[in-house]
């Protein structure tokens, strides 16, 4: 198993419907240094697809999505620029 980089920032978007988790991510990604990881906690199934799609559109890197024990995912994004 590969090492999961410790996120520099965790955004709690649990219980929030898309596009709110994406809006929160877009607002806050610039709070972390370049190459740092932001974790978005979300349980809206749309976020599971939309966070990686946002990364592709915005040229950030989707590191991985990890299931949370209480449901939902921690979706890790690396700031690219």
């Amino acid at each position: 198993m590969t090492e999961v980089t410790q996120p520099a920032l965790t955004i709690d978007a649990l219980g929030k419907k898309c596009p709110i988790p994406i809006i929160m991510l877009a607002e806050q990604i610039n709070y972390v240094p370049l190459n740092a990881v932001v974790a978005v906690l979300a349980d809206d199934p749309a976020a599971y697809t939309d966070v990686p799609a946002w990364c592709r559109l915005k040229s950030h890197r989707h590191v991985g999505s990890y299931e949370l024990p209480e449901g939902g995912w921690a979706i890790h994004v690396r700031r690219n620029y």
Binding site: D44, P45, T49, D50, W54
Partner: peptide
């Protein structure tokens, strides 16, 4: 095909399978 506009809470399986933005 956004989830809030469909009768389900899930977004469209088509958009999900493609890996494209499902909201808006």
């Amino acid at each position: 095909g956004s989830s809030c506009t469909a009768s389900t809470l899930r977004p469209s399986h088509v958009l999900e399978a493609m890996g494209v933005l499902t909201h808006g």
